[in-house]
């Protein structure tokens, strides 16, 4: 989750102060990526150190407003232009867990898969419910973020089905009579 570039993107629409950045960031990601305000200020001071944002005075309540610099625009353009590499993302705990379950004696892999599958399906049900709750007026960005999580949960579910099939092997020697 690139908070740094997210903040630059928001600032490219005009100067903002810290709390405003926090709420706008959370709203555009459909509240799926909560930020704490400390994280926002830490990120802003690093961006300032790197010359990507600068202070743009205070508003009437004395809150410091930040503005994006020309270097910041350049960094943001590069970010949008560059695809995200899978290697840049954090390791997936589930993948590690299943790999370990499959190779550690005494662990019931099928039970691990089954528990995860129920849990992932529940996640998928909740996400679907949340999406149904969004009416047409909800912002496109928010709907797309939820869609992303739905697709990820769906992919995980498919992968778990695949794991079950591979790990289980043919459990019955008689051929299946049923059509799929």
């Amino acid at each position: 989750m690139s908070v740094r570039h997210g903040l630059l993107a928001l600032l490219s629409q005009g100067p903002r102060y810290g709390y405003q950045l926090k709420t706008e960031f959370e709203a555009s990601t459909a509240d799926t990526c909560p930020l704490n305000i400390g994280q926002v200020y830490t990120t802003l001071s690093r961006l300032e150190r790197d010359g990507l944002v600068s202070r743009a005075g205070e508003d009437e309540q004395g809150r410091v407003r930040y503005a994006i610099t020309p270097d910041g625009h350049g960094e943001l353009d590069r970010w949008f232009a560059k695809p995200v590499s899978r290697a840049d993302r954090p390791r997936d705990e589930l993948v590690v867990k299943l790999a370990m379950a499959a190779t550690t004696p005494g662990v019931d892999v099928a039970a691990v898969v089954q528990a995860q599958r129920s849990s992932t399906m529940r996640t998928l049900q909740e996400l679907t419910r949340a999406k149904r709750g969004f009416d047409a007026s909800a912002e496109t960005a928010q709907r797309l973020v939820l869609d992303s999580m739905i697709f990820q949960a769906e992919a995980e579910q498919r992968w778990l089905d695949h794991c079950e099939a591979v790990l289980g092997g043919p459990s019955d020697s008689s051929p299946a009579k049923e059509t799929p």
Binding site: T32, P34, S118, R122, E126, A130, M149
Partner: peptide
């Protein structure tokens, strides 16, 4: 039936409030 999952999450584990996830 090997397992079942309830939308209300009443059947055990889970319960990660999804829309405030990760």
């Amino acid at each position: 039936i090997t397992d079942s999952s309830d939308a209300q999450g009443t059947d055990g584990a889970g319960g990660m409030g999804v829309v405030s996830a990760r």
